[in-house]
């Protein structure tokens, strides 16, 4: 096997090449959906995998990004990237507020608080005048990138989404490998010890939470532009559960796990929706959940890593 330091660069290069060529073989809209959810799940994994915080309310950030971007692009007529930036900022701000409240409690309470706060946001979106209630925001214009490049065409939209994904993924990769990321992992492993070493644990948790929320918002903003739609589905607690599943299935605490998990779950949903098992999607997702928790806790990427370590090192 190639030495550890060279390995990622080769891997990243190959993956990037594949991602650039992918729309030749696969329908770009499907690929964009996978990329949006991969970013969403990676953002979630930053919290669960690297700080050990289980947020059950990440749908709120996905939806906030989507709604704000949708509203701005529909009503204000700004160029696409500004709409996405504002959507992301709104989700980041919401993440800061959620984080401030939720980190006051630990473990199971943390999960319940984030879930309840996300439900509050869901009800606000149901009632708010600008969200279009049950219909959602429809016909969001894809617009022009920097006011110049039209994104109507699926292929140019795809490369824009790919660029956003790479930005988000690189940010997460940098965060994890930075000294800040090392402190996050220390908190995950042993919070009291991190405190006793003099780290202001709450500050680190809050920053990680805000960053994760912002990236989830970026995914939601991008998704609303791709599908030209922002709806309550994104804010529902089912969505918060789905992102947990994607991360768990792909591998918690691995860089590529959430990407693999998102691709698997999105493909599965697409495939099932067309077949006779369409009305069983929820049940099948539930089954995968149960199997992952009972027998497959490292997830796909985690198991592959274990296998490689056992056989090649």
């Amino acid at each position: 096997m190639i030495s550890k330091s060279d390995n990622p660069k080769v891997l990243y290069g190959v993956l990037l090449g594949l991602a650039i060529l992918a729309p030749l073989a696969i329908y770009p809209v499907f690929l964009m959906k996978v990329l949006c959810f991969a970013l969403f799940a990676s953002a979630f994994n930053l919290l669960l995998g690297y700080v050990g915080l289980l947020s059950f309310g990440h749908a709120a950030f996905l939806a906030t990004g989507g709604y704000i971007t949708g509203h701005i692009l529909t009503q204000w007529g700004l160029s696409t990237e500004l709409g996405i930036i504002f959507g992301t900022l709104a989700a980041t701000a919401l993440g800061y507020i959620f984080g401030k409240l939720a980190i006051r409690r630990q473990g199971i309470y943390f999960a319940m608080i984030t879930l309840a706060l996300a439900q509050l946001v869901f009800f606000l979106f149901v009632q708010a005048p600008f969200t279009g209630g049950e219909n959602g925001l429809q016909g969001i214009p894809r617009g022009n990138l920097f006011g110049l490049i039209s994104l109507q065409d699926n292929l140019s939209m795809y490369y824009f989404v790919l660029a956003i994904f790479i930005f988000g993924f690189a940010l997460i990769q940098r965060t994890i490998h930075s000294p800040f990321g090392q402190v996050l992992k220390a908190i995950r492993e042993n919070e009291p010890r991190a405190i006793s070493l003099g780290y202001d644990v709450d500050k680190y948790k809050l920053l990680a939470f805000t960053l994760s929320a912002g990236l989830a918002g970026l995914a939601g903003s991008t998704k609303s532009v791709v599908f030209q739609l922002a709806s309550l589905t994104d804010a529902h607690w089912h969505m918060s559960g789905e992102v947990v599943l994607m991360t768990l299935l792909g591998g918690v605490g691995t860089l590529f796990g959430p990407v693999v998990g998102a691709a698997t779950v999105v493909s599965l949903q697409n495939y099932l929706a067309q077949g006779p098992l369409g009305s069983w999607v929820t049940v099948i997702l539930g089954l995968i959940f149960v199997i992952c928790v009972l027998a497959f806790r490292s997830g796909i990427v985690g198991e592959i890593q274990k296998f490689m370590r056992k056989n090649f090192e």
Binding site: G107, A111, S279, W280, V283, G286, L287, V290, V293, L294
Partner: peptide, 24 residues
Amino acid sequence: REDHLYGLLLTFGLALIIEGSFVH
């Protein structure tokens, strides 16, 4: 013996299965 969060995730999965079956 595992992290308590796994209990939450397992029961969440079970809830999806039960609810999904009844919706079907």
